[in-house]
């Protein structure tokens, strides 16, 4: 390849340094993922580096003739390309799963998807069971264990325990338990006009984070808003180790509607202006973070190959030059014997 053509110049290592400096600035600006900084501060330097690197790989014999270095730079390029594809196809969302309910893809919150995302979240099927969270003294959160039932297409159920760094992986979607979790009273509303009764859960704020304000509201169809306050007994101890386990928790539901205020235990009900409210039972909910990126596996492979290439290239450079060592020892011996009064002289 001619050394002074435009492709060669585009692949110059000098431009690579410029690109790296620009990427470094982009990285500094992206620190903490601020909303005010455009993603382009990373994309532009990466595009620039990708073109530069591609040209260098194609035109520079100092890369393409050395196989290790070639693998390394091709690996770098693949990482850039794969992470770009990853951003375009990714999906992220949160979901709050009430115990004993099954996952419903239409109920995810704060969903963000790349424009090429075409996963099959709707086919994900699992049922949430109970969960436990261990706390060390001082309310320092430890391990979370969430009990899940997964159904395969033929309907066969399998039990799984997930939590923290062990996600539930279904259809390529990774479900990570989050620190967001709490209680939910299950209520039934029987309208006074004889309409269909409604049953559902009223999720209370995250626990124990918002232990002091376990409240929520709900307005039954065509009726006044009802305020709920949950008085919990979970055995929480600040100074000792404690395990949060919804199965052992009790909660009294304080119901306020207009001037009426009643306290209900599970199984009890109260008559309100528009109907009858039954407090069926206390249950729990657990938050998950959903993450999907089809490039994850390939990114990993590309990174490993990159390091393999780099290591292969460095191998020869690193095997320390015997010549240097010999030279060092000889010189030392020469000086030793040149010292006046040394034994050799005497």
């Amino acid at each position: 390849m001619v050394k002074n053509n435009v492709f060669y110049s585009l692949g110059s290592p000098r431009l690579a340094m410029v690109g790296m400096a620009a990427l470094a600035i982009g990285a500094v600006l992206s620190y903490g993922n601020p909303d005010t900084v455009s993603i382009w501060v990373l994309i532009l330097p990466l595009l620039f580096l990708a073109v530069n690197l591609l040209m260098a790989i194609l035109t520079n014999p100092r890369i393409y003739k050395r196989h290790g270095l070639l693998l390394f730079h091709v690996g770098l390029l693949s990482i850039v390309i794969l992470s770009a594809i990853g951003r375009l196809t990714h999906f992220e969302a949160d979901v709050e799963m009430v115990r004993d309910t099954v996952f419903d893809s239409t109920e995810v919150l704060r969903a963000k998807a790349g424009i090429w995302h075409d996963g099959t979240l709707a086919e994900v099927q699992f049922q949430q069971g109970h969960y436990t969270v261990d706390y060390s003294p001082g309310l320092v959160r430890g391990k979370t264990k969430s009990y899940i039932t997964v159904f395969d297409p033929s309907g066969v159920a399998t039990q799984k325990i997930v939590g923290d760094d062990t996600p539930l992986v279904l259809e390529g979607y990774r479900f990570y338990t989050s620190f967001n979790k709490g209680f939910a009273p299950i209520l039934t509303w029987q309208p006074a006009d004889g309409g269909e009764p409604l049953t559902g859960a009223i999720p209370m704020p995250s626990y124990p984070l918002f232990e002091y304000k376990q409240d929520n509201q709900w307005a039954p169809p065509d009726s006044e808003q009802i305020d709920f306050w949950l008085r919990l007994d979970t055995g929480l101890t600040e100074d000792e180790a404690w395990t949060l386990d919804g199965r052992h928790a009790q909660g009294i539901l304080v119901v306020k509607s207009g001037d009426q205020r009643v306290e209900l235990r599970p199984g009890e009900s109260t008559k309100l202006p528009g109907g009858v409210l039954v407090y069926e039972q206390l249950t729990t909910w657990l938050g998950y973070k959903i993450f999907y990126d089809p490039t994850l596996f390939w990114l990993f492979i590309a990174s490993v190959l990159t390091v393999v290439g780099m290591t292969a290239h460095f191998w020869r450079k690193i095997t320390l030059d015997i010549q240097d060592q010999v030279h060092y020892k000889q010189k030392k011996m020469r000086i030793q014997s040149a010292v006046p009064g040394s034994r050799e002289r005497a």
Binding site: G32, N33, D165, P167, Y176, L296, L299
Partner: peptide, 17 residues
């Protein structure tokens, strides 16, 4: 590790940056 632990492999937190 970050992917397993926090559900993302890179998020420009202080240490990663």
């Amino acid at each position: 590790w970050a992917q397993d632990a926090w559900g993302r492999y890179w998020a420009w937190d202080a240490l990663e940056t």
